[in-house]
């Protein structure tokens, strides 16, 4: 019961939705929509589990006075504070305080974290440029050529630009195709393993 019913559900929904792709009729389309709704609606209910997990982890940390427990207080207070500001009588998603918090806390931090990528790409480039093998030298040369495209290199600018564009258009396309064909096969194989019950570790054991 604990193992068999979930496996049957996986098989039934897996097979039905795989077949549905080939069947354009109205009942088939409605079934597809219900399945997509199902994924969304279950996601909403799962949010309760997510919030519960956050509270549980935070509360345990605070209760045990674990290292850095004070920051769990900040997280929980800001979470409930933000959710409270999003309530109906506070104006919902368009409430003034909700928008202020979003625009003046969320957005600046988001932009700052995103901009960290500039520093990280610099340090990653530094590491990439210490080519350790022939293969990484190939990567380095390709990366350098593309970077040189934005530098004023006088008479070399045109050829560098053309080689860079060609690399983005041609070898890039070939490699992407090879990867995508592999990904297509791999995802079908994974889906098949799930539907046939060959992979079942996600369904628990007891």
């Amino acid at each position: 019961m604990k193992q068999q019913i979930p496996l049957v559900l996986v098989f039934v929904f897996g097979v039905l939705l795989a077949i549905q792709y080939f069947v354009p009729s109205e009942p088939s389309q409605r079934f597809y929509e219900v399945a997509l709704d199902g994924l969304t609606v279950i996601g909403i209910f799962a949010m309760v589990l997510g919030i519960w997990s956050q509270i549980h982890v935070g509360y345990n940390k605070i209760k045990r006075r674990a290292e850095d427990w004070q920051y769990s207080v900040v997280t929980l207070v800001s979470m409930f504070g933000m959710a409270f500001c999003g309530l109906s009588f506070m104006g919902g998603l368009n409430g003034p305080i909700f928008r202020q918090l979003y625009n003046n806390i969320f957005i600046p931090i988001q932009a700052a974290i995103f901009s960290l990528l500039a520093f990280y790409i610099a340090s990653a480039s530094y590491r990439a440029f210490r080519a350790r093998s022939a293969v990484s030298t190939v990567l380095l040369v390709a990366a350098l050529l593309l970077m040189l495209r934005v530098i004023p290199t006088g008479p070399l600018a045109d050829p560098i630009n053309q080689i860079g564009s060609w690399m983005l258009m041609v070898p890039n396309m070939a490699a992407k195709r090879a990867i995508l064909i592999g990904v297509g096969l791999g995802s079908v194989a994974t889906a098949l393993k799930i539907v046939l019950g060959i992979e079942r570790s996600y369904l628990g054991k007891d």
Binding site: I179, L180, G182, V183, L185, G186, S187, A189, T190, K193, E199
Partner: peptide, 8 residues
């Protein structure tokens, strides 16, 4: 890519 799917 595909190696991710082959990993298991």
């Amino acid at each position: 890519g595909e190696e991710l799917y082959a990993a298991s």
